[in-house]
Amino acid sequence: MRAQSFKTGLAAGVALLVTTQWAAALDADDFAKKFAAAYAAQGAEITYDSASGQGDTVTIKNVKMEVPGEEEGLNFGDLSFDGVSEDGSGGYKAASLSKDKIEFSEEDVSFSVSDLKVENLYVPAQTGGDTLDDLLFYDSVTTGPIVLNVEGNDVFQASRSETKTSKSSDNTRVDVAARVDGLNVDLSAVDDAQARQAIDGMGYQNLSGDIVINGYWAVPTGEITLSEYALTLDDVGRLDLQFSISGYTLDFIKGLQQMQEQMASQSDDAKGQQAMGLAMMGMMQQLTFNSMSIRFDDASLTNKILDMVASQQGMSRDQMVQGLQGMLPLVLAQLQNPDFQKQVTEAVSLYLSDPKSIEISAKPEAPLPFASIAGSAMGAPQTLPQVMNVSVTANQN
């Protein structure tokens, strides 16, 4: 009787183990399929060989990302997701995704990212819905060293990078903050004679600095605002781009996805390309332009350029500046916009005399449909500065 009970219990245990392993495999495969589908919804096709589960860890084998126009995609190798759990509605949460090193290479160029880590990844049950819950999402992505090598030389390096995203409590806004630290650009291997002369003349064999990005996406209106996109290079200067557009809603994203699918199946004939071009113009009409600015704060670049060019021309820097200031009205006369010409001439002249900062901004009184901007650019380009309320200022805090 005891032997029979033991056999029965053993059989039940084996059956439970087999069933559990089979269920884990099914969950892993479902996770992988939904992970790939979420990426596809954002315009990137993911392929893989297989998926397996062990406890709350899911491993997807031989993950590749297809790149449009390229025969060879990007191979990420095996990806392991830890702390995977179902969210109760068919989606998944993963506490972390980590990868020691990812490398891509082609001929004499290689690119590597070390110590990749993604935290609190959310994989939706389905894509194409009307809320943020239908998009792939994560709390943070960090990396260690990033290296671009060309012909044996590390021409670009970064010591680390970090991107953080957060949703508002009502699911209507996404904030993004990112930075890349420890930038190093090695220009010593540049072999073009003219470029080499300029690099040596200004003393910029190596550039170092960082990148800072801040912005948000307001989902209901589709407003995307980039409040800071700043590249700072030591002893060079700081270049900051800011812009704001509206209309990039979830419906707009779905429209883009459908268009991408149509383009993939479209023939290469002229009629098909023309039809897709018109369709894209129609999509762009849904977007509106709110504002944009580009600002450069000088740290020595402008004076070094002026000194180098003046030396090549056999004159002093002051003579070079005066010559440029005299040429500005003649060059800008082609704009056929006297008021704007005067504004630009005054700002650039002031900047050349005392390089501190220069900024170009466009802030229309009301949001402008992209279609109206395109119409002005084609029909009456000289009116664009007024249409977009463009201003050019120098040496302002």
Rank of each mutant, 00 (worst) to 15 (best):
Y351F: 10
Q126S: 15
E359Y: 01
S311A: 12
Q126D: 11
Q257S: 13
S5W: 15
E70R: 10
W217K: 05
S300V: 01
R317Q: 13
S105K: 15
A23P: 00
G326I: 14
G222E: 03
L97T: 04
D175H: 09
I102M: 10
R238I: 02
E162V: 00
D297A: 14
A94V: 07
T20P: 10
A95W: 09
S85G: 02
K363P: 11
W22K: 07
M263T: 15
D56P: 00
M263F: 07
L231W: 05
G247C: 05
Q319H: 02
L148M: 06
V387T: 14
F296V: 06
F370H: 05
G90Y: 09
E71I: 12
V321C: 04
Q257P: 11
Y216A: 08
G43N: 04
D269M: 03
P338V: 04
K271I: 08
A32S: 03
K164P: 02
T249L: 01
M263Y: 09
K254C: 10
V348Q: 02
M1E: 13
T345L: 02
E119K: 07
I305Y: 09
I199N: 01
N171D: 09
D234K: 14
D181V: 13
V190N: 01
T165H: 08
Y48G: 07
L335P: 01
P145H: 02
T345A: 04
V118G: 07
Y216F: 15
E45V: 11
L79F: 00
T57I: 12
D170Q: 08
Y48H: 12
T288I: 01
V113G: 05
G326F: 08
F340W: 04
V348S: 06
L256S: 09
Y138Q: 05
S166V: 04
A3H: 12
V18C: 02
Q21G: 14
Q126C: 00
A377H: 06
S227R: 15
E162L: 10
S361F: 03
D82G: 15
F111L: 02
G43C: 03
G43S: 04
E228M: 11
Y248I: 01
V63K: 03
V309G: 12
A158W: 00
T57G: 10
V147Y: 00
L301T: 08
L332Q: 07
A198H: 10
E151V: 11
S5P: 01
Q382K: 09
T131H: 06
S114P: 00
A41H: 12
S114G: 12
Y39S: 05
R295N: 15
L250G: 01
G272W: 02
S357K: 00
P381C: 05
G203V: 03
